[in-house]
Computed example of a mutant assay.
Amino acid sequence: MGPTLETCGELLRPLRALMGLKQVALQRGYFGDQEVPYAAAGLLAELVFRGECRASDLAHHRIVDASVVSRQVGQLEQAGLISRRPDPADRRVSLLRATPEGERAVAELERRKAEWIANALEGWEDAKVRELGRLLGDAMDDIRRHTIDEGICHADPATREGTR
């Protein structure tokens, strides 16, 4: 049956607050880095964690327009944080990958983010943080699957059952 709309509505409040805190942290410079433009940092991290892939795959996975990825790829390539090579399966397309400098930059950014969270949650036990991570990961997997993989992001709620 799944959760009620009321229960899901209650979940939206802390999720909105979490996104707001991310913006505050950005404004205060907790994640700022001269080496990696913040707008492109997520794309660089995606390449580090996913490995080599096409720009179109990144756009799909990050749920952004290809022009956004193209602009960020240009920034990252100019900074020496990613490289490209022709796709052997289709030489008209490039495969993107993080350079060792890009991997190092992402590792440093991830370390700073983890430090920020560790300081904020200093009263929490490791087991509680692991459980939160597991629950958020499970929720994001299901939301991503529902939104992207099933392709019903903009479907009319009344017709969703027929799209499965």
Rank of each mutant, 00 (worst) to 15 (best):
I63A: 15
V106C: 06
L47G: 01
D87R: 09
G151W: 01
E110F: 09
P100T: 00
Q34S: 13
L136A: 12
A118G: 13
D149L: 14
L12C: 01
Q23L: 10
I143Y: 15
V73M: 10
L11G: 01
E101K: 15
D149P: 02
A98K: 05
E110N: 09
A25T: 03
D65H: 07
A98E: 08
R97D: 07
V36S: 12
G20W: 04
E131F: 01
I148T: 14
E46C: 08
L21T: 07
R16P: 00
M140L: 15
R112E: 04
G123W: 09
E6Y: 09
E77Q: 11
A55Q: 13
R71P: 00
V48K: 07
E103R: 15
L81R: 10
G29I: 07
V48G: 05
F49L: 11
G32V: 04
G2E: 15
R130Y: 04
P157V: 01
D138T: 06
G151F: 00
D149G: 11
R130Q: 09
G20D: 09
E110C: 10
E35A: 15
R28D: 12
A45W: 08
A155H: 05
L135E: 02
R145W: 12
R112N: 02
A118Y: 03
R104L: 10
K128Y: 12
G133K: 00
G42F: 11
A98L: 05
L26Q: 12
Q75F: 07
E101G: 03
A79Y: 07
Q78H: 13
I143Q: 11
C53W: 01
W116P: 00
D142R: 14
A41H: 10
V36A: 11
G137P: 00
G133P: 00
K113T: 08
L43N: 03
L95V: 08
A89W: 07
C53P: 00
R144W: 08
P37V: 06
I117V: 14
I143P: 00
T159P: 01
H61K: 13
S83L: 08
D142E: 09
R50Q: 13
A66M: 06
E103L: 06
P14V: 04
R97S: 14
L18E: 08
R112W: 04
M1V: 09
V69Y: 03
L47Q: 02
G102K: 02
L136G: 01
R112S: 04
I152C: 03
L26W: 12
L132M: 14
P88E: 13
